[in-house]
Design a protein around this nucleic acid. Structure first.
Length: 824
RNA sequence: GCCCUGGUGGCGGAAUCGGUAGACGCGUCGGACUUAAAAUCCGGUUGGAGUUAAAUCCAGUGCCAGUUCAAGUCUGGCCCAGGGCACCA
């Protein structure tokens, strides 16, 4: 074994050998139980960044740990390779999106291999290739047949910069998730997936996911936004129309003093009197001009205009005016709200501004409010509410709604904030939506046997203001599968999140050309046992994937309810306290780290300083420290190589020094195994590697010549060390294993086991406290009983001195650990 | 405003059940080796008091209370930071 550690040399060597030997291939059939470890697949942007390195290293260590613990581990990798950057690169540099994408994939694949990741590359999935997107299109057709894909005209989010529409989930604070430009509203006919059909199950089944963090689950629950309330129908006085409103406060219905409809409310024109028409039109025109940001801004003063018409409150017979105001949202509930200024903060502000009347209907004796300065939104008892007076408002919600149901002017209603998923994109580089439009037959899906609908090649990427795909001379021409006549092909492509909603299913059966996957294999491998990725997908990708799983289950394609059993959301990689980004200039290039220190150092460091879920601060000194540590490990092994053998046998009785070291090794095995099993605390795992290495060095320092017993103990310690470190320092440990005469790959070895009796020190340290404060420590035999421990503590000179002249009130003995003497 | 997460040395962070606060590392200070440097090795490093040096004592896990023989850990009430949602009726 060489004296010096040359990571670049040994890493290249082993990567080649692993590839040639197929070390990381996963058979579908195995006597071992399955384990599916998955990283979120990357977008091939060009180069790996440190966030990727962190993500994939975490998953890789988990996969290797599970493999050594007897599982048949599926650990695949692929590319989320459709999407706008490829198209933008095509516009800028004239490169074909496909060529640009595949070149990036080739480069990043090389980088992943340099990191020493244990992927089964035979299962690689590339979403932009026809053998994958064929099945994305096929799945679209199945969803369409089931009524879960449909086309409708709606006000949609439009990003001018990207030249396409966006899903609600892709609008962050009124801005585009990708380019950060302000999103506008447009009225367009688009394709949607009916995710709302699963709103309730998506919410309810979060309870089936104890292996997900609460933060992600609450984010999803908030996004789905379930609320329970009622719909009431209000008759219009001036004509025979009815205005339905949704409310979560049916208990306040006797306090209504006006009613508001959104400026985009569908019947607003019919509800406006001729005298008010001009003002209402002007108000609506102004509302249309405003961006989402302006309209949603928090501190904006509420505005509105009266429509001139009136409604009757069916509960009281009272007549009240109708207004339009942009604090009512057209897309939520019915687009109309009943206003109770006394018990709703928004209605209160509006009523104050326009001097609208107020009527208190809920009071709380302990906390009375006249609602002059603010709305009272807490609980209380009903007043001014006819037969409901004196009822608790929580009970009145039900009773009042029931009355509306009985008398035919209302119903109980559950409302969700979640909207259907808009999947059309006016872009080229995506999976074409497999649909044609026939003048005679209307919307027609492309027959399954004609899939895939391939992307055209004769495309001009220099066009502005429209999708490049529309410049193809041939693409739009199609034949109607129904009548055989001329038809026009859909030119929109699918949101890339459609492709990534099922990629983890394809890994189970990546080469299948008859179906997206076989039922047998998908039910064998899925659900994913451990999913690892960034928190930024808490809603987007994770919600869409859950929807896909449930929809495909209902299509009979698979038999499980949730795709990801356990989810680890890793923290960001920071440098100098800020997120690494090109614009800040604080990025670290993984290639440079591989070149200067090797992949094992990079892997060790990225796991070492923070627990996986927390943010990780990159520091050059930290990398250096890890590199030094690996050198130290190398020296420890190489300088002792002639005294170490992988086939050692430990004698049953040992000298004190040797017994101590054996115990330290058992403690390390136990601690490291528990730390990995318990939430993947790799930072403490690594500190335990260091402790073990330090202990072996200390032991070596005490020996000048090694006896046979010493050699066996040293072998035990070193072999255990390289097994324990092998999931992290994958190349170094493989090299050391081979150099020490190990058979096969270290990565195919069994994980070491500890002996509970040896995984502790040979004696205990008795902690002696007086009034709860540490006063003395005594080495003691573990076998001592409580009385003997008490005796021992009281015999301490220190204790004698401190208790002199005082009364011992009480003595608490914690077996094998501590004695606390309470004195006065 | 509502929800989630977190708050421990100069820094990253440790601390199964309530039982030695600060593991391990980074940084830093001192020493050894060397003509010198790098590398490596050894030792100190929460604050304060104390001493030639030690021993030793006091305080200390965001703040204020409480429970307990014993609280970083449990309970109640706050404060701060990060993230998510938000005129959702």
């Amino acid at each position: 074994m060489k004296n010096a550690y040359f990571p670049q040399e040994i890493e290249k060597k082993w990567q080649k050998i692993w590839e040639e030997n197929g070390t990381f291939k996963t058979p579908d059939e195995s006597a071992k139980p399955k384990y599916y470890a998955l990283s979120m697949l990357p977008y091939p942007s060009g180069k790996l960044h440190m966030g990727h390195v962190r993500n994939y290293t975490i998953t890789d260590v988990i996969a290797r740990f599970k493999k050594m613990n007897g599982f048949n581990v599926l650990h695949p990798m692929g590319w989320d390779s459709f999407g706008l950057p490829a198209e933008n690169a095509a516009m800028k540099h004239g490169a074909e999106p496909e060529k640009w994408t595949l070149e990036n994939i080739a480069y990043m694949t090389k980088q992943l291999k340099m990191l020493g990741l244990s992927y089964d590359w035979d299962r690689e999935v590339t979403t932009c290739l026809p053998d994958y997107y064929k099945w994305t299109q096929w799945l679209f057709l199945q969803l369409y047949k089931k009524g879960l894909a449909y086309k409708k005209s709606a006000a949609v989010n439009w990003c001018n910069e990207c030249g396409t529409v966006l899903a609600n989930e892709q609008v962050i604070d009124g801005k585009c998730w990708r380019c950060d430009s302000v999103v506008e509203k447009k009225y367009l006919s688009q394709w949607f997936f009916k995710i709302t059909e699963y709103a309730d199950e998506l919410l309810k089944d979060l309870d089936k996911l104890p292996g997900w963090g609460d933060n992600v689950k609450t984010m999803q629950a908030n996004w789905i936004g379930k609320s329970e309330g009622a719909i009431f129908n209000f008759k219009v006085v001036e004509n025979d129309m009815v205005v339905p409103v949704y409310t979560t406060r049916p208990d306040t219905v006797h306090g209504i003093t006006y009613l508001v409809v959104a400026p985009e409310y569908k019947d607003i024109e019919a509800l406006t009197t001729p005298e008010n028409k001009e003002a209402v039109e002007a108000y609506r025109a102004n509302a249309r001009k405003m961006t989402e940001i302006e309209r949603l801004s928090n501190d904006r003063v509420k505005t509105g205009v009266p429509l001139g018409t009136h409604c009757i409150n069916p509960f009281t017979g009272e007549k009240f005016p109708l207004w339009t105001a942009d604090y009512a949202l057209a897309e939520y509930g019915t687009g109309a709200v009943m206003a109770v200024p006394t018990h709703d903060a928004r209605d209160f502000d509006f009523a104050k501004k326009y001097n609208l009347p107020m009527k208190v209907v809920i009071q709380n004796a302990e906390n009375p409010s006249d609602c002059n300065d603010a709305a009272y939104t807490e609980e209380g008892v009903l007043i001014n509410s006819n037969e409901f007076n004196g009822m608790k408002n929580t009970e009145a919600k039900k009773a009042i709604t029931q009355k509306a149901v009985d008398e035919g002017f209302g119903e109980f209603k559950t409302q969700y904030r979640l909207r259907d998923w808009l999947i059309s994109r006016q872009r080229y580089w995506g999976a074409p939506i497999p649909v044609v439009y026939c003048e005679k037959c209307g919307i027609q899906t492309v027959p399954e046997e004609q899939l895939p609908v391939l992307l055209p090649k004769d495309v001009d990427f220099s066009v502005v203001g429209k999708s490049p795909i529309t410049t193809s001379k041939t693409f739009a021409e199609a034949t109607c599968p129904c009548c055989g006549g001329k038809a026009t092909r859909e030119t929109d492509t699918m949101d890339t999140f459609v492709c990534s909603s099922w990629y983890y299913m394809r890994y189970a059966d990546a080469k299948n050309d008859k179906a997206p996957f076989s039922k047998e294999l998908i039910n064998h491998w899925l659900p994913v046992d451990q999913y690892v990725g960034g928190i930024e997908h808490a809603i987007l990708h994770l919600l869409y994937s859950r929807f896909f799983t449930k929809a495909l289950r209902d299509l009979g394609l698979l038999d499980f309810d949730e795709p990801f059993k356990n989810l680890l959301t890793q923290g960001m990689v920071l440098k100098d306290g800020a997120k690494m980004s090109k614009s800040k200039g604080n990025t670290v290039d993984p290639d440079e780290i591989f070149e200067n220190y090797g992949a094992d150092t990079a892997r060790l460091f990225i796991l070492s300083d923070s627990p996986p879920a927390r943010d990780f601060d990159w520091s050059d000194a930290g990398v250096e420290g890890c590199y030094k540590f690996l050198n130290r490990v190398w020296r420890l092994i190489s300088s002792n190589a002639e005294n170490i053998s992988v086939s050692y046998s430990l004698p049953s009785s040992l000298t004190k020094d040797n017994d101590d070291l054996v115990r330290i090794v058992h403690m390390a095995i136990k601690g490291i195994t528990n730390d990995i099993s318990n939430d993947f605390q790799f930072n403490t795992v690594i500190s335990k590697y260091r402790e073990l290495v330090n202990a072996i060095y200390d032991w070596c320092g005490k020996k000048s010549q090694l006896s046979d017993e010493d050699k066996a103990v040293l072998s035990f310690a070193i072999v255990s060390l390289i097994k324990l470190m092998s999931p992290v320092a994958v190349h170094l440990c493989e090299e050391a294993w081979t150099e020490l005469g190990g058979e096969g790959s270290i990565h195919a070895q069994e994980w070491p086991v500890w002996d509970e009796n040896l995984a502790k020190a040979s004696s205990i340290t008795l902690v002696v406290q007086i009034n709860g404060k540490l006063k003395d420590k005594i080495e003691a035999d573990e076998a001592l009983n409580q009385d003997e421990l008490k005796e021992l503590a009281l015999s301490s000179p220190k204790v004698k001195e401190l208790t002199e002249g005082k009364t011992i009130v009480k003595t608490i003995v914690v077996p094998k650990k501590l004695v606390n003497i309470v004195v006065k």
